[in-house]
């Protein structure tokens, strides 16, 4: 199992950057592709925001099904208030990626 210490990625007691979230996502993605378990350790992180949680964890739901995420991902040392925020992020991600976006995205003007 791979353990990712979030503080080592953010170099701060905050996890607020979507770029840092992308870095976490990339590590998880590599492990998930190899069917390896990942543990996210939030020790020392005092505050998170949706931008970080969306890009690190919420985005997983656009690629992987819930069962795979549940079996391979574990999260430790996340404060209760932050867990409540993560719950909202995951609910919103499931809603967004669960619905058929194909029609809407057909209309997206690609840059």
């Amino acid at each position: 199992m791979e353990t990712i210490k979030i503080k080592d990625i953010t170099n701060s007691h905050l996890a607020v950057s979507s770029i840092d979230g992308d870095k976490v996502f990339d590590i998880i993605d590599v492990s998930f592709k190899a069917d390896k378990k990942v543990e996210l350790d939030f020790e020392g992180i005092e505050l998170t925001i949706t931008a970080f949680l969306n890009s690190s964890i919420g985005k997983l739901y656009s690629i992987y099904d819930v069962d795979k995420i549940k079996s391979l991902l574990s999260i430790i040392n996340l404060k209760q208030d932050e867990i409540a925020l993560l719950k909202l992020v995951i609910e919103k991600a499931k809603e967004r990626f669960g619905k058929d976006l194909s029609n809407e995205n057909d209309l997206v003007d690609e840059a």
Partner: peptide
């Protein structure tokens, strides 16, 4: 984009 989570902040 469709692969990004968002719309909550």
């Amino acid at each position: 984009s469709k692969t990004e989570a968002g719309g909550l902040g």
